[in-house]
Design a protein around this nucleic acid. Structure first.
Lengths: 236, 236
DNA sequence: TCCTTGTTGATTGTATACAACCATACCCCA
DNA sequence: TGGGGTATGGTTGTATACAATCAACAAGGA
């Protein structure tokens, strides 16, 4: 891959690199992003880095705390629920507006993505599986032919990968292959209402597979348990 | 109006000033926004102005052309249609999730906004009427209790004011008072499904009241017609 | 031991200088 | 007279220097 594009739009390439790294869970929530480090890494000045960081903050992928620097966002539980609820509204709405706009080639492209995701899952490539799963949802919404809608959904899906990185269990974090297949079949049959209903349940399934409770390491309780254990069992 | 806030977060205040000016149609689509001029006006350096402009560009309220500066965005017809279609999906979806969350105080607040809009309309204060009409929609969606959804809708409504500024006829550009009233009534009765349906039709009504045709002065056609007219003496 | 307070190092916030670029206007040549 | 190449002014793009801020640490006193 090109290391740095010397000519134009360095900020664009830096942005996409960071965006990809976050969505692939190669940069985990909570990771700090000092401007100097990034500037050195990408061979750019802090001015460029700053522009990129602001854009990522708008996307909700990082958080910029005044005077304290940027870090990969850690979505709160309410925020995560809101994101999935909004995705349900948007993606189901997209399906409802898709009637008569879907070609056979579109369906074939979706199937290809689905197959690639399946393969990645079998090979144990978790990052690729998550990325392809997201791409399936994005491409699906694209079929509605609404650029504004597509962009909103793409952003929410990027944030969803942060949610999965924060709350997902190591296994079964991504969509079940069969559910995507089912949606494709329903669209092929022109059953858009049923497809939308399936999509709603599909997203609910993903949301349910997350572990909301583990948030907040609960330092107090952990330490107390440790002290109790050492006090009752072996002396200090 | 306050000229400059000397203390902190100048960018925030500058942003909100510009945002308000755009949404109130005091800055019309196509207006150029040179960095120097803005910097001088607000008493800040170009660094601050740049940050604000990027944020406005992200909101879709201005367009930044590389090396050529920023200008108030002029939404294209397809973009405008997409924005309204997306609003329909989101606002109707919000209504559907509102069951059991609406208090009497919420309804009273909506009625107050509606009354204020009505008053502004009677007084002929077009800017205030547009602003209050938008505020009604935003506050309504807030009742769903989904912060992510609220933010998306708020952004789309801000862009809608640009659409109205570009394509709206001088009269009847804003929502009809009675339609907002009707939605409040339906919510008060707990008829959220009907309210969502009404909202959909309401947004379609707004969209239909715009004049899509006048966009693109159609230079080619105009000139050809002119030439034909002078050449043929009258017409074809 | 705990709390307070001053210092220090690192990091971000802002302004400004300079380079790059585009659009206009001008001039020369056919 | 018109077309094309070229200066020029004005505007944006980028880097860097400096100021402001915060967190961590150390030292002093109760």
């Amino acid at each position: 891959m090109k290391e740095t594009s010397l000519t134009p739009e360095r900020d664009e390439t830096i942005y996409s690199h960071l965006h990809a790294a976050i969505c692939d869970s190669r940069l985990l929530p909570g990771t700090r992003l000092p401007e100097d480090t990034l500037a050195e890494t990408f061979g750019a000045s802090r001015t460029i880095i700053r522009k990129v960081l602001q854009r990522l903050a708008y996307d909700g992928l990082i958080e910029i705390r005044p005077n304290r620097g940027a870090l990969i966002a850690e979505p709160s539980v309410p925020e995560a629920r809101d994101i999935f609820a909004t995705r349900r509204i948007l993606e189901c709405g997209a399906l409802a507006e898709m009637a008569g706009k879907v070609s056979a080639a579109d369906l074939a492209a979706l199937k290809a993505i689905n197959a690639a995701e399946d393969e990645a899952q079998l090979k144990g490539d978790r990052a690729a599986a998550i990325r392809l799963s997201g791409e399936f949802h994005v491409r699906l919404v694209d079929l509605a032919g609404n650029a504004v809608l597509s962009e909103l959904v793409a952003r929410l899906i990027a944030r969803s990968s942060l949610i999965i990185a924060t709350y997902g269990s190591p296994i079964s974090v991504t969509c079940r292959h069969s559910e995507h297949e089912q949606i494709i079949d329903l669209i092929a049959r022109g059953a858009f209402t049923e497809a939308a209903q399936w999509m709603g349940e599909h997203l609910t399934t993903i949301e349910r597979s997350l572990r909301w409770e583990q948030e907040t390491p609960d330092l107090q309780a952990v330490l107390r348990e440790f002290i109790d254990g050492s006090a009752a069992g072996r002396g200090k």
